[in-house]
């Protein structure tokens, strides 16, 4: 499995392009937009910039895919009925709740 990362000089060129070209943001700026993007709260122009970065940056694309999968996984792990508390709640707990009410 390849874990290849662009070498440092390549990343430097990439960084310079992202910093200087119009309509571009750095990966760090992209990072700060992620939540707003996913919540559909980015103004139109920033959304265009965000999506353009996504097209040209393999690292951020991969990162965002894994990030989204993480969110989905967290939700599903708890929503999964077999992971939830079993339906059988101990009778003594129910009794304790009702007794406390009567007290």
């Amino acid at each position: 499995m390849s874990r290849a990362m662009p070498s440092r000089p390549l990343r430097r060129i990439k960084g310079m392009i992202l910093k200087r070209m119009p309509l571009m943001v750095t990966c760090e700026e992209f990072e700060s937009f992620i939540l707003a993007y996913l919540e559909d709260e980015l103004p139109r122009r920033q959304r265009v910039v965000f999506e353009f970065h996504l097209k040209i940056c393999r690292e951020c694309r991969d990162y965002l895919a894994a990030y989204r999968r993480t969110v989905e996984l967290g939700r599903a792990a708890f929503a999964d009925p077999s992971a939830a508390v079993p339906d059988t709640v101990p009778e003594d707990l129910i009794a304790a709740v009702l007794d406390a009410r009567d007290a």
Partner: peptide
């Protein structure tokens, strides 16, 4: 991120 604000992220095949 590196010093050029580029993300360091191993590929996800």
């Amino acid at each position: 991120f590196d010093e050029n604000a580029c993300r360091i992220e191993a590929a996800w095949p």
